[in-house]
Computed example of a mutant assay.
Amino acid sequence: MGLNEFILGLTNLEKINRAPGFFKFTEHTVAAHSYRVASIAQVLGDIEEVNGIDVDWKMLYEKALNHDYTERFIGDIKTPVKYASRELRGMLQTVEEKMTDEFINQEIPREFQEIYRRRLFEGKDDSLEGEILAVADKVDLLYESFEEIVKNNPEPVYKEMFVESVQTIKAYSHRPSVSYFFKEIFPELLKVDFYGKADFLEVIDQVLAE
């Protein structure tokens, strides 16, 4: 028993596509998503520090890099399915946690097991780093879905993902990084022209005003 299986699992993440079952112009993998989330979390962490807030960078990077590692066990479940009901979401989380715990017990050397329990279990907690992860995860989903929207993807799920991402990010408005995101970054993203832009921006303005 060594760390071989953990490293092999990184290759599995390169083969798991995001938003499975929906037509998309650009495929994104869980591995690519994890890298982007870590990079976005780094940007958000920088903004927090510029505003005088101390960031535990080791914890932030651990949370961001590993936040979707356990999808190697159950794959990336369609968002509408995953959140169809609180009960279903809870069942999926229980299965994921049990498989993760079994993986750690069987494949991770005993001296590293507590480390990997910290890294592989839910990272979106009430800590500063957990909140940054939650925002970074949705920022990436927002950009990912927007890429399909501007290409006139007919699947309505991408606009739904975008709106849900904006709502989730907005819930962390107490964070300086979120205030900065909506003031300085978000407007730049929306400058791109695309079909149906006026109606879409009206919906987004309503969400931001709630």
Rank of each mutant, 00 (worst) to 15 (best):
R118W: 10
P176A: 09
E155R: 02
I169T: 04
K98Y: 13
K159A: 05
S165I: 03
E49H: 00
K170H: 15
I47T: 04
V203R: 08
R175W: 10
Y83N: 10
F200W: 00
I204Y: 00
L60Y: 04
I204V: 15
T11P: 02
S39D: 11
F6A: 01
G2A: 06
L190H: 08
L92M: 15
P176I: 07
G21F: 04
I149L: 04
L201A: 05
S145L: 03
A134Q: 00
T11N: 11
E14G: 06
V30P: 01
Y172I: 02
K24Y: 05
L142E: 08
E48P: 01
I204T: 03
D101E: 15
F73H: 14
L128M: 07
F194G: 04
S85Y: 08
F182M: 03
G130P: 08
L88K: 12
L8F: 12
R117H: 13
F182T: 06
S179G: 12
E114Y: 07
N17V: 07
M91P: 07
G21Q: 05
S173L: 12
M1V: 10
L60H: 02
S145E: 00
L8R: 11
F194M: 02
E27I: 09
A19S: 11
E48H: 11
E122G: 13
N4F: 06
S39E: 12
N66C: 13
A31D: 02
F162H: 03
A84D: 15
V150C: 08
K82R: 06
G52Q: 06
G75V: 05
Q113N: 09
Y158N: 01
H67S: 03
V207E: 02
Y143R: 11
V30F: 08
T11L: 14
M161E: 14
V55W: 02
F186Y: 15
K98G: 09
N153R: 03
Y83S: 07
D193L: 00
R86M: 09
L44R: 00
A32N: 14
G45M: 04
Y69A: 00
L141G: 13
L13P: 07
T26I: 11
V166H: 05
E210T: 07
I108Y: 07
Y83V: 04
L44G: 00
A136S: 08
A198L: 01
L44I: 01
F200I: 00
T94C: 09
S34Q: 06
A136G: 05
D68V: 04
F182A: 06
G196P: 00
K98D: 12
K58G: 14
V37T: 03
I53H: 08
S85M: 06
K58A: 13
A19H: 14
V157L: 15
E87Y: 14
I204W: 01
W57Y: 12
D56E: 09
D76E: 15
R89L: 11
V178E: 06
P80C: 10
A41I: 02
E87Q: 13
G123P: 06
Y172A: 07
D125E: 08
Q42A: 11
V157R: 02
F121K: 09
L44C: 07
L10D: 05
